[in-house]
Design a protein around this nucleic acid. Structure first.
Lengths: 200, 200, 200, 200
DNA sequence: GATGAATGAGAGTTCATTCAT
DNA sequence: TATGAATGAACTCTCATTCAT
């Protein structure tokens, strides 16, 4: 009945790391293969194309992020707005730990990836956009709960846009962290995130 | 004999467009040359490498942004905080016009570029970071003036960080606009930018 | 229990179609397998190589041609020279039907196949040549019978060569039909075939 | 002003030989390059694709055939029908010489090539068809002249079709010669070609 | 000063085939 | 008996770059 291996998983794992650290276009199939200890000829048994692997890597990253970051941050037992703060805190911890180990600060894999997609990569771009919208919906839920709890004086009609504002701020912070190779800025700027959800 | 060859300028111009629309690694030297109507052999007469061209393109983009966007936004005759609003408004106009012409929404060239730089591109990354810091200093100056005019109640020690927060938000907005191929979000989210500069 | 796997037969059948429509070298083992709904790993259980499959496909095609075309054309109840005419007529009907269904006109599978064999494919080439000689012998028999019946004034020593001439004309007609993607030429040129068997 | 070389010509020349001896799909770009003493990276400077090279090789072969074979065969000073005979004679000489040197008998490059083209190679197939039609028009002209000189009793309306019949016979002869790796059959069957042009 | 020609290295992908089960 | 998994070699083609003029 044929053989079995974790080659597929290893390819996804290494692809994510390499693409996140460098970029989709800068990383070659051969490099991914050799890091995953998979023979180059085997790659196309597991994935129809490099693009499909990149998509799978993004999907897997999103699943893992939901399990490891989102689930902990958007814990219903936390006060709603604290969840948003916790999201940023965890992301800071991740990048701070990397920086301590002299690894470059990576920023957001989805954000970097979407920045290098072109006209012809519509499907990939739309998938990343959908992931952003999912992240946004977690933030939105927290804001809505805060509002309903009376912690917030904003119109119901502002809730979604406010969530997007938080998301944008989040992505922007991670982009600046990557640009400056500096995890500290994540912590510094996180302090202001709740300003965005309160009425001016 | 009049003016110099325009080949260099054309190369920079086309490189910026192609890199912004696609990405640095996705765009080839030959493609840039053919768009610029420059023979490929001539490329290395004008630039020592593709990387040098990309850097030149970023520099030129920054100079132009200063002349056409920054100068108008940070006009001393405007009320300080209005300058920040105007910055976003102009960027929105640019992307809205493109979208009207069925061109993809591009986001920030610097932001996208920095997202695809890797470990070995330290010089490029640091240059983009420096440009971000320059943008930040315009914002910082506006915030400081507003504070000194009494429009703002924040500590002097918060001014720089607040400017970075605005910059992060700005970059995040443009990233989401690119991800969603949607210029409207720039306008929608711009309404909240001043929340970041007021004390909570 | 019951009948054997049909995988072998399906592989042969699909291989013939694909090779005939395209070419031996242009068609991959995987493509044949997927069309035959056979898992690629199974291929080498049934055939030792792609070449062996191609040979089997040619053999099967030849057996089928003998049963469906040759047997009807070289029916002893037909006047000898009419058999040659009937051969061409049936081949025309086959290709005309295909063209009506907007399928490309294929020409002769053996002729196309032999055209793409090289120095190192001696065994295959000789097998196709032998099939040609077999076809020739049917034609030769018809010519001989016509001569013995007094329908023809050619020397006995010319019979074999004349049969080869008819065979060459037949192959040439099918080649032109494929080149022009036009079945009609088969009918048009068939009218002249008996000129070749009469003395000048 | 750049360098100069005969690389393009050598590539065409070697491509023709290799494709003729083997087949388009069986021959790789690398093999053509190494025979032409051209570095593989240079190939795509000279030709946009392997297909384009194949087409160029066929074109060049046709030009050369016109100059070296057609021009001599269809010499107006020859009696019209002798021109057709001469065409076959020259082709026989070419193949007989090759066989003497223990080279495989090749048949017609155009005929073999068209046999391995598939659905998606419409442009190539149509070009080869057009070449066939050109060859046909030389034959047609000879037949027409013979008819006008009173050497032939066929209807004017039969002239074109008769020319195609001769062309088909010619292609079929070369196909059989390749299949049998036997140049002699070209000479043997050539003796019958004029039967096709006389009325039955 | 400027460029047409050329290139080695490597890109992503497909190949006919083999292996472990 | 039959196959899902895997593969090294080869495929067509593109890359950033250099060379001769």
């Amino acid at each position: 009945m044929g053989r079995k291996s974790e080659a597929r998983e290893k390819l996804i794992e290494q692809a994510l790391i390499l693409i996140w650290e460098n970029s989709y276009h800068a990383v070659g199939v051969n490099e991914i293969c050799s890091r995953a200890d998979v023979r180059p000829g085997s790659f196309y048994y597991f994935f129809p194309s490099k693009e499909a692997l990149a998509l799978a890597a993004m999907e897997q990253h999103w699943q893992q992020a939901k399990e490891e970051i989102i689930a902990k941050a958007f814990d219903p037992s936390l006060p709603p707005l604290q969840r948003i703060v916790k999201l940023l805190e965890q992301v800071y911890q991740f990048h701070a730990a990397r920086q301590k180990g002299n690894e470059p600060v990576l920023g957001c894999a989805f954000g970097s990836f979407v920045g290098e997609l072109g006209r012809d990569d519509r499907a990939l771009r739309e998938r990343i956009h959908a992931i952003f919208m999912e992240i946004g919906s977690y933030i939105e839920q927290a804001i809505r709960e805060a509002r309903e709890a009376g912690d917030l004086q904003i119109a119901e009609s502002e809730v979604t846009t406010t969530a997007h504002a938080v998301l944008a701020y989040y992505e922007g912070i991670l982009l600046l962290a990557r640009a400056g190779n500096d995890a500290q800025i994540i912590q510094d700027l996180s302090r202001y995130v709740l300003k965005l959800v309160h009425s001016a």
